[in-house]
Design a protein around this nucleic acid. Structure first.
Lengths: 153, 153
DNA sequence: TTAGGTGCAAATTCTTTGCACCCTG
DNA sequence: CAGGGTGCAAAGAATTTGCACCTAA
């Protein structure tokens, strides 16, 4: 799925601006890696980004792709899907439930909500395929981590 | 977070029933691994399950834990959080959006919904900590995979 | 009894790191 | 030209697999 030229341009401009403001160097590699993620809505993994950039820049190495992607994430220029740098976790709760996940420590708690369960999906989603379940993920900071933030050591 | 004795018992009974019906053997190892996941709402990873089971059964090996967890998942006795057996994926779309994810091939598409964005969280969630974002994940089967299912080669 | 299950150790896969050279600012 | 950035190769972490022995049915 391609992104419009206009949107890509905006994303690239934002990228360059954030780069400058944060003092990081604006290298050819970083531009191509960001461009690769910015120009698609396919949510590629590191390997996919690597393959894409390589076509334009055959000397690119996979470890630079990883370093750059995490850097871009820290700068808030991209986000990750699923638990980044985390292992798979398992859940024996088979009732329809939703999750609260702490973005600091990964603490995960189930919760229930009839309102969420009854959510009507927009028509645009129906075009993607057949729906099975809808789960809401609330990201935030848990009480413990919140306390640590306010009173550091 | 402990689960009530009553609920654990129900889960174990369901486990034994599914085991028998599916023809798989009801081994001591499998019971202890399932129990470990069933008795908590901590959403443990494989290592955590391994450590827990080991206290009761020191000969348990980590690879049996993995094999058993995936087996339990295939049987529908447990679910996984995050992209199971998948790599981290990246997204340059910073607008508030939600995801449709194909459970067969992993295809992921963004969509937008004001109704979802405005969702009011139940009070019970507020007790977990400070909220930041709420993202809806719709799981289903994409058009391509759906077509394959109906007309297998 | 016997086919499926387990433990061990080795293999894979994904991701990170140390180090010497390179290039942006 | 200085310090961060990159490529390479090797290390690490998470997960999987081959194989010989074991055990539930």
């Amino acid at each position: 799925m391609k992104i419009s030229k206009r949107e890509i341009k905006q994303r690239m401009e934002r990228f360059e601006e954030v780069c400058r403001n944060s003092g990081m160097k604006l290298t050819h590699q970083r531009m191509e890696i960001f461009r690769e993620v910015a120009q698609t809505s396919d949510h590629p993994d590191a390997e996919k980004v690597y393959q894409g950039v390589r076509k334009r820049m055959p000397t690119m190495s996979l470890d630079t792709v990883y370093r750059t992607l995490w850097l871009l994430k820290d700068l808030g220029l991209i986000t990750t899907l699923g638990p980044p740098r985390e292992r798979t976790r398992f859940d024996a709760n088979l009732s329809h439930h939703h999750h609260f996940v702490c973005i600091q420590c990964g603490l995960t708690r189930d919760f229930y909500s009839d309102a969420f369960d009854e959510l009507r999906l927009p028509d645009s989603v129906k075009a993607f395929g057949r729906m099975e379940t809808t789960q809401v993920e609330v990201k935030g900071v848990c009480l413990k981590c919140n306390a640590k933030e306010k009173k550091p050591s």
